[in-house]
């Protein structure tokens, strides 16, 4: 079953790469000038046109693009002068770290509120919970980020407003995740600095997700509360707390986990904006930098990267789901 799902993924991956490949041809003007900039010499233009196969038919060009993508050879970035792959891999841990912390923030906020709202259905608590969720989905995260910077960073001076770590502190790169690396090295000053730098971006990025998960938790707990096994649990004389946390929540979480997985796309979307607002050096920030520097090659690779990561995670969620809930077949 899983094998069939994986084979089914191949055409989709090809489709993703084809769209990303076509992007370059969407832009007005000659792609070679887009790659080299307007001031390129005719020799350079001819060399790159041949090197990148841009003098070949479109199908051939696409084949070359895929072949290069397979081995991770995307050439050098115009803006940074370094291999594109190296740039992306260097910054990837920062984005993963931010996304993970945001996910934790979102879970910590949303699941208690969601459960409580459902249990206290149609009371003031429930209305407050659902209203908060509605506010959460409606808040533009770049505005939320700016407001946090203004109040927490500027006015009250509680948290640092940009970057990953305090200037002057060094973290030896082992995994690339500052939190993990600083802990491994026993460097607590760096650890706390990294935590402080992550807080505001994580709240900014996690809010919308928290709002969505609150709603899903609420509705899924409500649905579970109507099931027969809940009545059985109550009839056995279990305490309300045991019924809710041990019976209802465990089953409700199946839906919540799926939604969390599927919402990773929202985190990737949001990471671009959040990283830009907080000048946080992840791949989202790199994407916007590459776009404003018109470094099209880097942009193209980053978009491909985002697409493939998102797709792979969704696939993983599908597969994991069959283990959590054996009733589901792919």
């Amino acid at each position: 079953m899983i094998g069939r799902r994986l084979i089914g993924a191949i055409p989709v991956l090809l489709g993703i790469s084809f769209i990303v490949f076509l992007l370059m041809h969407l832009a007005p003007g000659d792609p070679v000038y887009l790659l080299l900039g307007e001031n390129a010499t005719p020799e350079d233009v001819a060399r790159v046109r041949h090197e990148w196969g841009l003098d070949e038919p479109l199908a051939m060009q696409y084949w070359q693009f895929i072949s290069r993508a397979m081995v991770g050879d995307f050439g050098r970035s115009l803006k940074f002068g370094e291999p594109v792959m190296k740039l992306v891999l260097e910054r990837l841990p920062a984005t993963i770290e931010l996304a993970t912390i945001s996910l934790i923030v979102a879970i910590l906020i949303s699941i208690p509120i969601g459960v409580y709202s459902a249990v206290k259905r149609d009371t003031l608590v429930d209305h407050a919970g659902t209203s908060m969720a509605l506010i959460g989905v409606s808040l533009p995260n770049f505005w939320l980020g700016i407001m946090l910077i203004y109040f927490l960073g500027g006015r009250w001076n509680l948290l640092p407003v940009a970057g990953r770590i305090e200037y002057g502190l060094e973290v030896q790169a082992i995994t690339g995740f500052y939190l993990l690396d600083s802990l491994l090295m026993g460097n607590m000053a760096a650890f706390w600095s990294a935590v402080k730098h992550l807080l505001m971006p994580a709240i900014t990025l996690g809010t919308a997700l928290a709002a969505i998960v609150t709603r899903i938790t609420r509705s899924s707990v409500l649905e579970m509360m109507r099931q027969d096994y809940v009545m059985t649990a109550r009839a056995k004389g279990l305490s309300e707390r045991a019924v809710i946390w041990r019976h209802i929540l465990r089953n409700a979480l199946i839906t919540v986990v799926t939604i969390l997985g599927l919402q990773l796309g929202a985190l990737l979307n949001g990471s671009v904006i959040t990283e830009t607002v907080f000048s946080y050096p992840g791949i989202g920030d790199l994407l916007i930098q590459s776009i404003s520097a018109r470094d099209y090659r880097l942009t193209q690779v980053l978009i491909l990267f985002f697409g493939v990561i998102y797709f792979a995670v969704n696939l993983l969620v599908d597969v994991v789901y069959t283990f959590i809930d054996p009733r589901i077949k792919l």
Partner: peptide
Amino acid sequence: SKVTEIFLAFPFLLLAIALMAFLG
């Protein structure tokens, strides 16, 4: 369905960002 799946493989805003980056 296949085409839908391909479009869904891109996070929504990112696809828009990508298109805008190249369209102008």
